[in-house]
């Protein structure tokens, strides 16, 4: 039987507004790509969320800071979910 992993996703700033929640839990297949989970969550959430996270080529925007278990992931396309993770998605912020 395929194994699954649990991922806690926390959103910041405009992402939290678009998601309507600051934090949610998701289940993914062990070894599945991180970006697949993000794409699924974005589509399930709203068109705005999809637009904020992904460009017109359906690629995760480079300006989104992806943090897995406390560390920034600079190449999320090659990151696979092997165990339970704490995912922190940061929308760029500026000024004050």
């Amino acid at each position: 039987m395929p194994k699954t992993v649990n991922v806690t996703i926390t959103y910041t700033a405009q992402l939290a507004r678009a998601a309507g929640v600051e934090q949610e839990s998701a289940t993914a297949m062990q070894g599945s790509p991180l970006t697949l989970l993000l794409r699924d969550r974005a589509v399930a959430c709203s068109a705005e969320m999809k637009e904020l996270l992904f460009d017109s080529d359906d690629t995760l925007r480079k300006s989104i800071v992806v943090v897995v278990d406390g560390s920034q992931i600079t190449n999320p396309d090659s990151f696979s979910l092997e165990r339970d993770h704490d995912l922190f998605l940061m929308m760029p912020i500026s000024g004050g």
């Binding site: 637009e51 300006s63 800071v65 920034q72 760029p92 000024g95 004050g96």
Partner: peptide, 25 residues
């Protein structure tokens, strides 16, 4: 390294509370 490209959705008008900006400062 943090932001390899300019964020396309950044809006110059943003919500701000002075106490928060002072804390970050």
């Amino acid at each position: 390294c943090l932001y390899p490209e300019e964020p396309p959705h950044w809006n110059r008008r943003f919500p701000v509370l002075g106490a928060v900006s002072s804390l970050i400062a």
